[in-house]
């Protein structure tokens, strides 16, 4: 069962590299919206891969229980809650009227607010 061990180690390294890339994106991106994009979601994939690696590594070493079930629960929870929290964060940034970068080409939401298709998003 050496193969499962090495597979788990490779998944763990890939996940932590993905976390590192998310944090580099957090540093380099020019405005809030792009930071939310790269910062919170590459880290989602990184957390999923790392926990899969932890679960695979825990199979062989310790005989009492393996952690696969808990790892699956944790991954499902991360997938459900992470987009909700980052979506509400982005909406808060839009409500605060933080400006986009100058590179931004189109803003359909602003056009529709000006054309009175929908009212401005605010607290409910």
């Amino acid at each position: 069962m050496e193969i499962i061990q090495y597979l788990g180690g490779a998944l763990l390294i890939m996940g932590s590299l993905s976390l590192l890339i998310a944090s580099i994106g957090l540093i380099r991106m020019p405005d809030v919206y792009n930071r939310v994009q790269t910062g919170t979601k590459a880290s989602t994939l990184g957390a999923i891969l790392s926990f899969l690696g932890v679960g695979l590594l825990s199979i062989e070493n310790w005989s009492e229980t393996n952690w696969i079930g808990r790892v699956i629960i944790l991954i499902i929870f991360i997938i459900i809650t992470n987009p909700v929290s980052s979506h509400i964060l982005m909406r808060a940034a839009y409500v605060m009227k933080i400006p986009f970068t100058i590179d931004t080409k189109v803003d359909k939401l602003k056009e529709d607010i000006e054309n009175k298709v929908l009212e401005e998003p605010k607290d409910e």
């Binding site: 890339i21 580099i24 994106g25 380099r28 991106m29 020019p30 919206y33 792009n34 790269t38 590459a42 986009f100 970068t101 590179d103 931004t104 080409k105 189109v106 803003d107 359909k108 939401l109 602003k110 529709d112």
Partner: peptide
């Protein structure tokens, strides 16, 4: 996109 040196992004809001 993140690792390339000149950040090739082109953001916008679409419907």
């Amino acid at each position: 996109r993140i690792l390339s040196p000149n950040l090739p992004i082109n953001p916008g809001v679409v419907k």
